[in-house]
Write a protein that binds this DNA or RNA. Structure first.
Lengths: 228, 228
DNA sequence: AAGTGAATGTCGAGG
DNA sequence: CCTCGACGTTCACTT
């Protein structure tokens, strides 16, 4: 890992072209040759970057300025960095990172709802998770109190895409006589947050919406919240 | 901008929880208090981060180790960094960045196709760009060789979402007698790359697909390619 | 290798 | 302020 603080000007050419005027920035060069250009603001996304695999070639312009050329041989992307003044340049051996452990994403939400389908609708019971169809798996296939099939689509953030997805599933499922024997398959759109447009579209299509409280669900599994 | 190289262990709690075991990493602390944790690999996304607005508080554990606590008062996200060994710690004043100038994204594709609708279908002419409807603007509204209306949806990468979007437009447009006077409004789905699933869905719905060559289109506008 | 869906997405425009 | 769609999306996982 090499860290360079420098006054520089940068040009990128790849899927788009982009230009950064001369200014002081931080250049991070990783062991795999990838390069990140950061300014003192914005969020985690660099102003500009090159993804691996790529190689950095150090050269000079006619007038003696240092110029880096970073190229990705697979995509033909190039990043040209003109260095007007190097303020700091240091290298460090970081070793291999053990990696990030995550908890609390959509998969966990699905697991929790699979364990507690009754929180979505009174009397709902799980038939199976990841119920397979020709166009992909339905998150939860359930049966309601009177024995009708219910397809549940789970999102962390519920927007129109999720409603469209569930609609496609329902169209397909409602062609299956095994599921529709007792009546049409209903849909429930479950998310931690449901956007107004998504709610309107869902309602228009007869799909129920369920806003899920992740912490409350987790509480159901937490021994300290149990009654016995 | 402060750059710290340190052996550290990190815990994040916010929309999810995440943990990074003890290892050597680069910590980037920006002027707005935001923090980025980078390892010597991966791409531009940090292993962990805190977005502004947030504040960094430097403290110590019982056993004397340095501990940083970064908090975002709005979202209640917290990042706890336990520093076992600081290898390097430097600060630099970068000033304000003039910002990035981009060229070559979807807007340009739309401009080029608006100038050359005939490349989408023989005899197609532009009626107007960003044709307004109740559910949003249609990228290009055109008329074909025999006077029928054609709605064009443009994407850089064409996947199912785009087909759904165009379908919604077509449903709405086909209720307008002014447009359907001569016959139903047709749809063209134009993208630099069309995913197989999107193509199948489009075809199933009678929507034509057009793969657009950005460079060739640009060539039509380039004086050096003109015949006269 | 290619496709598909999630993401602590981020970012910017427009209402 | 919120909502929506694009993104050099990136990323992980499946086929």
């Amino acid at each position: 890992m090499r860290l360079v603080v420098a006054r520089c000007q940068i040009d990128y050419a790849g899927r788009l072209t982009a230009h950064l005027p001369m200014a002081t920035r931080v250049l991070m060069i990783k062991a795999d040759g990838s390069v990140l250009v950061h300014s003192d603001g914005g969020s985690y996304k660099p102003l500009n970057w090159m993804s691996p695999p790529c190689t950095l070639r150090e050269g000079a312009t006619e007038d003696g300025q240092v110029e880096w050329t970073v190229t990705n041989p697979k995509t033909d992307d190039t990043l040209r960095i003109l260095l007007a003044e190097v303020i700091s340049d240091s290298s460090h051996d970081l070793g291999i990172d053990p990696g990030l452990q995550k908890d609390g994403v959509e998969k966990h939400l699905q697991e929790l709802l699979a364990d507690h389908p009754g929180t979505l609708a009174e009397g709902l019971t799980l038939v199976r998770r990841e119920y397979p169809t020709a166009i992909g798996p339905v998150d939860l296939m359930c049966r309601d109190a009177v024995g009708l099939s219910v397809a549940v689509e789970i999102k962390r953030r519920g927007d129109i895409d999720g409603v469209e997805q569930l609609t496609r599933y329902l169209e397909l499922l409602n062609r299956d006589p095994l599921l529709t024997g007792n009546g049409a398959v209903r849909g429930i759109f479950a998310a931690q947050e449901i956007k107004p447009q998504a709610r309107v579209l869902a309602t228009d299509r007869g799909i129920a919406c369920a806003v899920v409280d992740y912490d409350a669900l987790r509480g159901l599994d937490d021994p300290s919240h149990r009654l016995f």
